[in-house]
Amino acid sequence: MAAQSGDGEKDGAKFVEFIDVEKMYGSFHAVRRLNLDIRRGEFLTFLGPSGSGKTTTLNMLAGFERPSEGMIRLDGQPVERMPPYERNIGMVFQNYALFPHMSVADNVAFPLSVRKIPKSEIGPRVVRALEMVKLAQFKDRKPTQLSGGQQQRVALARALVYEPTLVLMDEPLGALDKKLREHMQIELKQLHEMLGVTVVYVTHDQSEALTMSDRVAIFESGEIAQIGSPDQLYNDPATAFVASFIGENNALDGTVERVNGDECAVMLPDGLKVIAKAVGPLPQGAPVQLAIRPEQIKLAAEVNGHDNRIGATVDGCIYHGDHQRLLARLANGQILTVKIRPEASMAMGEPVDLAWSTGDCRAFPMGTAISGGH
């Protein structure tokens, strides 16, 4: 499966290039024939489940791993045989990797010291880096005297203090609680926009990827299944795997009854028909997976002109503040999740008609199972 560069360019310059890159560990194919361009100044996220190849790809870019085949270029120069310390790359890890016996200021100064920066320059640069992450007042504290979020800011300041051209982040917020993680996502994005540095970010958290990224590359089994802007991946997934990994989805299995251009009629097991957008080759009689997001399903009584209508019974309602999640049981026993108004009143067992537009429902060739998302 070939990767594409996709949209979402910054200044249009290819800053990082992976050219036919492969990585083998014995007989295990960790990364398969990767071709990827990273634009100068963009925030690109590698997203995927464990073992999908995203961290291995990041480590090859950092220099911690060497490709089995292929070439990696950084600003036009081949780097696959260049040691990490010569690549001018900043790294931020999940575990912070701070020196506990050193002060915050000394931790941040460390990359400058090992690069033999004159002492007269180190102090001002450390102060500037700590001011960027709003920690200048804590420069004399030890890491153990800081909260998890503050420690992560120190790690970020240390990665930025020597003004690298590229910053790599491997699950940097994974150890933080939900509220702090969401706050740090905003801070990281603002810092990226302020500095204009190129960031490559690894996560398995799809909401984090959607929140922060200019583009997202979704990894599956050592390949990039799709790359694009967050809204492209959410609204126009190219495969069933991408549809399942980005956001929530309802899944329905069926068989293609007929195809008309980019639309197809799908017969569900209970005899109901659904019109969907066809994604990929879908010959008549082929088994397919349908994907429809909870917010795209409407109560039929509240809308007009939707192509698909299906009967169900209320199996439950879950209150979420700004909306409710209606659990609607179909005749075949399958339950669809539907987002409805918070004030809507639905009783258990009540019949309900659901509706959605053809363009909001996608039919994929039968393959990777669609789940409810993450």
Rank of each mutant, 00 (worst) to 15 (best):
V104P: 05
I72V: 14
R73C: 12
M82S: 14
V92H: 01
L98I: 06
E69H: 13
A97Y: 06
Y96Q: 09
M82W: 00
P78K: 02
P67C: 01
G76F: 11
D106V: 01
A97E: 08
A105K: 09
V92G: 00
R81M: 11
M71F: 00
S103W: 09
P100G: 07
N88I: 00
V92K: 00
R81C: 08
L74D: 07
L98M: 11
V104N: 04
D75N: 15
R73N: 13
P100W: 12
G76K: 10
H101T: 10
M91K: 05
E69N: 12
F64I: 14
Q77K: 14
P78H: 03
E69P: 00
A97M: 01
P100H: 12
V79N: 07
V92I: 10
I72Q: 09
P84R: 02
E65H: 09
V79F: 02
V104E: 05
A105N: 06
V92P: 01
E69F: 12
E69D: 14
G90Q: 09
Y96E: 07
P83I: 10
H101N: 11
R87C: 08
V92Q: 01
Y85H: 15
F99E: 10
E86K: 15
D75K: 13
M91H: 05
R87T: 09
V92W: 00
V79T: 14
N107E: 03
N107F: 00
V92T: 03
H101R: 02
A97I: 04
M102N: 02
F99K: 04
F93L: 13
S68K: 08
A97C: 09
G70C: 11
N107D: 03
P84I: 00
M102T: 03
E69R: 15
Q94W: 01
D106Q: 13
N88A: 10
G90D: 06
I72T: 11
Q77L: 12
M91F: 13
Q94I: 06
M91Q: 07
G70D: 10
Y96I: 05
S68C: 03
Y96D: 05
P67L: 01
I72E: 07
L74H: 06
M71T: 15
P67Y: 00
F93N: 09
E65P: 00
R66V: 15
M71R: 15
Q77T: 12
H101L: 08
G70P: 10
I72W: 06
V92R: 01
N88D: 15
G70L: 04
M71I: 13
V92Y: 01
P78F: 05
F64G: 12
M91T: 13
N88M: 02
I89M: 05
N95V: 00
L98P: 02
P83T: 03
F93G: 05
A105Y: 07
E80W: 08
E69L: 12
E65Y: 11
P78L: 01
P100Q: 10
P78D: 14
P78N: 11
R81Y: 04
F93E: 08
V79C: 07
R87K: 06
Y85D: 14
G90H: 02
F99Q: 03
